[in-house]
Amino acid sequence: MPPDAMIRIAGLRVLYGAFAAVDGLDLDIRRGELFGLLGPNGAGKSTTIRVLIGQRKPSAGGVTIGGRDVVRDWANIKPTFGYVPDRENHFEEFTGRRNLEFFGQLYNVPRLRAAEVLKMVELDEAADLPVRGYSLGMRKKLLLARAILHEPQILYLDEPTANLDIHSAEVVHRILRERVKAGATIILTTHDMDEVEKICDRVGIMARGKLVALDSPLALKQQHTERKVDVIRDDGERFVYDMDTPAGRNDLAALVAAGRALRIRTREFDFHATFLKLTGLAFD
């Protein structure tokens, strides 16, 4: 195990009645890494995060953060992290600013910090509107603003970019990279494969409460990209050549030599296909 593991999940099991939402999860998150947790609906991602924040007690196994047990040391651990829940939870009748100011008071941060984070998530124009009138994306951004209010060393983000437009998602990505640069450790769950590829240092893929893959996006790419080439011939016919067989390599060379290849494309890493294959959800 790496010595710089910040968050250590060991043999974690979470039961809802007889149903195991998380079923024997072992995972180490390194200090200063941006970790992406992927998985189909109901895989147990949110449940894992609920254990990490101490909302739900593990049925077996446990979680330590910087060597401290989350359940036993909860009071000391909770000020060190920020959390974006999957379901938004704001005071509807308060403005965005009032919401942040209230939580800022509880975290004992200066009043001006609220305005600062509102600007960071580009909510400064809507800051004085009641949250009741916010759109889904605005609510999500306000959650992130609240989570980074006290500049925590750990961030748990449950689908932080769901419902965000492309620009806002990029704003969020920039904030997350900045936090990582400042030394923070981040776990985020998402359904957006491009996002994972773009910003995550490592990716874990969960299915049915278990971890089915764990690596950097690049390594996953190399492991799962097929070495095949798609070619369109000058008469419009499409061909696929397998680079792992001599016949495939020779046929492609002959076609290129004859000058009949109109377009040649190597297959890119297809995260979607990989994801579906790993989680056992691919259609045959």
Partner: peptide, 10 residues
Amino acid sequence: GVLLAQALTP
């Protein structure tokens, strides 16, 4: 969920 949000603060 705001009660939880408050419980997670110091």
